[in-house]
Structure formats: C-alpha cells, structure tokens
Amino acid sequence: MNNMVRRSSKMARRYRLRGQAKTWMLYSVATPILFLMVVPYLYMLAQSLAPWTEVNRVFVPSSFTLRSYKWLLTGGAFAIAQPWLRALGNSALVTTVVTLSRVLTAALVGYALSVLPFRGRRRIHDFIMFQMFYPGIILLVPTFLLIRSLGLYDTYWAMIIPGLVSTWAIFMYTNFFRSVPKELIEAARLDGAGELRIIFQIMVPMARSITMIIFLFLFMERWIDLLWDMIVIRDPMKRTLNVLLATMFGPYGGYPGPLYAAAVLLTFPILLLFIIFSRKFVKGVSLIISS
C-alpha cells in the first residue's frame, strides 16, 4: 500500500518533470521567435537614437542622442528639409477621417442588411460580395482618371473620398449583427427607439470588441497605403508620412539616422494604438475569424 503510494507519487513527479521540460522547451523556442518579431522595431528605434557614426554599424549604440530627430525636423544645414511633421499630420488626418467613415458607414449598412427586412437587401449583399472579390488593381487607372476629372487630383479629397466605405467592414458588421437576438431589437422599437438609436446605443456597443478590431485593421491598412497616395498627390506638403519616407530613401541616402527617426514616427503611433487596445485583441480576432 505504502509502496504503491510512493510509486505513484514517483510516477506523478516524473510526469510533472516531463511536462516541465516540455514547457521549458516551449518557452526557449517561443522567446527567441518573439524577439525576432520585434527586433526590426527595436533596431529602428536604436538606430534613430544612435550617434551618426554608429548608424547601421552596430546593433546597440554606445550612447543615445536626439540628433537625428532634431535634424529631421529642421533639415540640418542642408536644403533638403522635408515637411516630416506635416506629413505625419497628413497621415493622421487622412487615416482618421477615412477610418471613422468606414466604421460608421459599415455599421449603418451592416444594420440595414442584417436587420431591416427591406426588398433588395439580398441583392445588395450579393453585390458587396462581388465587389469584395473583384480585383481592385483593374480599377487603379480608371479611378485615378475619375479623381482627376472630378478636379480632385493633388488634393486631400483624392486620398479620402474613394475610401470612405469599406466592403470588408460592412461584411463583418452584417455577419455580427445577424447574431444579435431579434427580440432585443423589437423590444427597443416598442420602447420607441428609432433605427439610428438602436444602431448606436444597442448594436455598436454590443459589437464593441469586433468594432475595435475592425477599426484597428482599417486604420492600419489606410496608414500604410503607398501606391494610391503616391499617384494622386504631387504637392510635397500634402504627402502622407509613408509616401514621404518612401520617396526620401534616395535623397536622404547619406543620412540614415534621420530616415530611421522618420520610420519611428511612422511606426510607433500604430504600435502604441495597438498596444493600448491589445487587451481584448486576441478574443476580438477570434470573433472576426469565426465569422
């Protein structure tokens, strides 16, 4: 009896040890991979703060300086000063307006398509699917021509108007709103709530975590757009930060430090936004995926 207890506890210990070894192995694989995933961000940050003699020569600078940032903002003593802060502002303006509009319109349209039993909604839904899978590249040249003939070439509107509505976001909301119990909506209607109130006081709050993910994905996608913003804008003062950085690779070739500083300006706002919202991120994403 006693012997058996001792034996089984020995076995349990051996199992526990094996489990522990497995766990350690898992961590010792996962941690370097995690490092690999964040190392470009760390590299960017370190190089932007490195003394100029060390940029791209070492991984960890011997000391830190804000010289690259100061140079970036003043252009140093050279005539190649660029409106970096303004470009950051342009990115923020365009991205915020487009993303807010996309979320807002998607909530409205998604509600109409999932809750309101009006005729034609099936057809609209089918058309949205068609548009989602239609290759956007065919529309690049004609959309550019359309923007130009509307007189919007080289204006902020050119970056904003074509993107005000997202079929993907509509699709996401339509699917999520379908799962909201009809009784809830009926009850709100009996209480005299209008459709708009139902959308913004019941539906959207219920879809909080999915809204957060939709917002994040749309924001990021717009923030890092390159091709479209590049072809519709010529005025350097209206360029987004992503476009400005892409066009400065050559002219700033001799000044990698300031380029890294600009990359930090471009990248870290998104990272910050994400990390602030990341608490419910994994759950939100699995919601998106299951829909």
Partner: peptide
Amino acid sequence: FAVGFFLPYLASGVAIGLVIQG
C-alpha cells in the same frame, strides 16, 4: 506571445524596408 507575434503585421513595408536595407 499572441500579441507579440502579431506585431509585424502592423508594420509599414516602407519602414521595415528601411531597416532591412540598413
């Protein structure tokens, strides 16, 4: 780990291009 592994998805190809070039 989930959030950390996801971080690369947020990167602009331009900024990461700069890092890779460096």
